[in-house]
Design a protein around this nucleic acid. Structure first.
Lengths: 239, 239
DNA sequence: CCGACACCTTGACCTAGATCAAGCCAAAGC
DNA sequence: GCTTTGGCTTGATCTAGGTCAAGGTGTCGG
């Protein structure tokens, strides 16, 4: 529900991709040039694994286009989607910066192109570059806050609360149309729900006239006010 | 289950407290001296609030002695315990470093003494001190990893899995005795369980001969092997 | 010593959401 | 074109864990 007019032109230069990236916002041109000079292009077909957890971290990835699914694999095979990364977002930053093994797996949920900054070069640069260090430190702090939020959602909200919050936080165009990022099953999993429950909750919202489905798999928000209200509260307090 | 012989002498100097702190491990003496020079002592009686979420962050806290409960308050009054901080642990680091409002509340679960490094002075220092910056960056990365772990636990494990993992990760003395940190209700809440469920799971473990209760509210691990096995797997796969 | 109170335990229920199963539809492969 | 495959919906059922209620126990203040 954050109005956003984005026209994604796919083939961008490495420098453009890095500039579009929130984690690097605040760096000046020279700083960005340094990063750009280290950058390596990576391209992944839909469904291909990008890396698996416990491996050494190859580098910090910035998504140019497509969609990357970052998920944690439990010993029994269950998985939990930690993050769906679209253009401008980063993944594997934590391991690249902290210098430890990858805590999660990633694959391409849609055909994806990324810019990668190799771990060792990043580390070299961090050892010298104070401004970059500070920038990433702030970025990391935001990242922790994000996870605290996610934890709260999963711990304190019911299914309806989680879904409405997802919708409320999703970018939409001026007419209130939301393009869901990725498959519903992945979104559901990210919210720690089954796709069945996710589906049922959406139906319930449609029945209550809060949303409508468009033909092209997107969601149209009718009653933004009620959506906000539902997403603001945790647990079911209505009626 | 990590054997640990710690004899906690309560009245420590600020410098000692800061040295004992994991987040600052890796700093040399001069660096630590800088931090020490900024430090402010804080003392809290049991039950008193230390700060509430949404407020500006007063500083980065390091626990000297006692126990601090960091929790997130939902609009409807429910709360979720994010962290129980004992000696040597930090809290409010994220907001102090990132420079934003506090994402959670804190109060003293037991009478507690802390060393606080005020936000503004920390920020000043971060602007200049590259080594400190790098150190905290690594610390932050570990912190994110910790939260990912926590998320996985809550999302992917059942009650038994979460409790056994808590026990397995808790420090014990040489004879396998674990002193539970804080009240059971807080521990249970941290695991996103009710105290009732927590209680039942412990009883079940006792019935299976994995643990025993000591008179002094501590837990004695009998069958460490089985505990490890139970804590290693997610979801119930036995029998 | 006697409440008062907060924590913990235990039992009896109850519900949100998982699981199972069936069917639909669109894209992909042949 | 037909078949396969994978995602999505929907209904019927099951269950882990929450909720409610009733003690039990330890601690504190008087």
């Amino acid at each position: 529900m954050n109005i956003q007019s984005r026209s994604q032109k796919s083939p961008r230069t490495d420098e453009e991709v890095i500039r579009s990236c929130g984690l690097f916002r605040g760096l000046d041109d020279t700083q960005r040039a340094v990063l750009t000079s280290m950058a390596v292009r990576k391209r992944f077909k839909q469904g291909t694994p990008i890396f698996v957890q416990e491996e050494a971290c190859p580098g910090l990835f910035v998504v140019d286009h497509g969609l990357v699914r970052v998920f944690r694999l439990a010993p029994n095979g269950q998985q939990h989607v930690l993050h769906l990364c679209g253009p401008g977002q980063t993944f594997a930053e934590v391991a690249a910066i902290g210098g430890f093994a990858l805590p999660a797996c990633a694959d391409a949920a849609q055909p994806a192109g990324c810019v990668m900054i190799p771990t060792d070069r990043l580390q070299q640069e961090l050892a010298l570059n104070h401004q970059l260090c500070r920038q990433l430190l702030t970025g990391m702090a935001f990242w922790v806050r994000h996870f605290v939020q996610l934890l709260e959602d999963i711990a304190l909200r019911d299914a309806m609360g989680r879904v409405t919050r997802l919708l409320y936080d999703s970018p939409c165009d001026a007419s209130g149309r939301i393009q869901l990022p990725g498959a519903k099953k992945d979104l559901a999993n990210h919210l720690n729900l089954t796709s069945e429950t996710f589906s049922r909750v959406l139906r319930r919202l449609a029945e209550q006239g809060v949303i409508e489905f468009d033909q092209d798999r997107s969601v149209h928000v009718i009653d933004a006010q009620q959506l906000e209200q539902l997403s603001g509260q945790s647990q079911n307090t209505d009626q």
